[in-house]
Amino acid sequence: MTRKSQPKKSWLFLIINWEEKLMNEKYSFFKRVLNSENTSGYVFILPWILGFLIFTIIPILSTLFLSFTKYDLLTSPRFIGFENYIRMFTNDPKFIKSLKVTFFYVFVSVPLKLTFALMIALLLSYNSKLSPLYRAIYYIPSMMGGSVAIAVLWKRLFSSDGTINALLNLVSIHTDISWIGNPKTAIWTLIILAVWQFGSSMLIFLAGLKQIPVSYYEAASIDGANVFQRFFRITLPLLTPIIFFNLVMQLINGFMTFTQAFIITEGGPLNNTLFYALYLYQRGFQFFDMGYACAMAWFMLIIIAILTSLIFKSSNFWVYYESKEE
């Protein structure tokens, strides 16, 4: 690790030295060019531009091209026009199912998660000595939630002889239902897992709450507003920009959910947890159906683009911006 970091470091110093040399009057032309903001801007963002072209743009365009082909990775791609896209909607019940499942998951788990995050944030906004500790405890699940360790744990908790049933047994609810095996409950185990990770959204809300001037509440109290009125009239409107940010990020994350379904439910039972990203992976890397998988990827991109633009458009109506200095 240190070995790799050193050339990087000396490279930085080289730039500084080189740059200082150029500062000499002799090189005034270079100096002017290099120091014009047009150049310096591009110099700084150059790494990203390169990465963007190589690792994003070229692959995206290749995905688009491949989505019009039949491609099994071994023989060269064969152009088939829109066939993949047509097949998605006319002759692939699993694709439709995966869309439904993903939409259900996203539209249930994201609002639930944000509601929880907001509620707990409100609870924790009362300062006490223990606040940092509470904050940490509530945050930890969201830090580990995506890991394999948690996925494996979840599987154990919700199995028919798992901890959840054992605990229910204690309060004399006797059941040996396999929460993961039951088509009706399986998706909920994943939703619970998502909601359990409300920590980072909570932190953002917490910070937002702290920024609301106390004077607003004082004024409202004097006017005789009760707790609920204060919440709905002051807190919520002022938090809308943060809700907006959280919503966009969580929606996209929701659509990309893979590991949890891959490990915990394997897409089952009855494909009831066959998330879009999981089905895409199966199509590409299990059935050698790369063209189709690429078509699915592009369709996913379109869905996310539409959703985000809808949210952005709608934000004019519900996101409240205080007058900003910028």
């Binding site: 996209i252 659509f255 990203a277 699915m296 592009w298």
Partner: peptide, 13 residues
């Protein structure tokens, strides 16, 4: 690109 799902670039990458 922040909003771009990894799946879109996964296969060509």
């Amino acid at each position: 690109t922040m909003l771009l799902p990894y799946q879109v670039v996964m296969i060509p990458q």
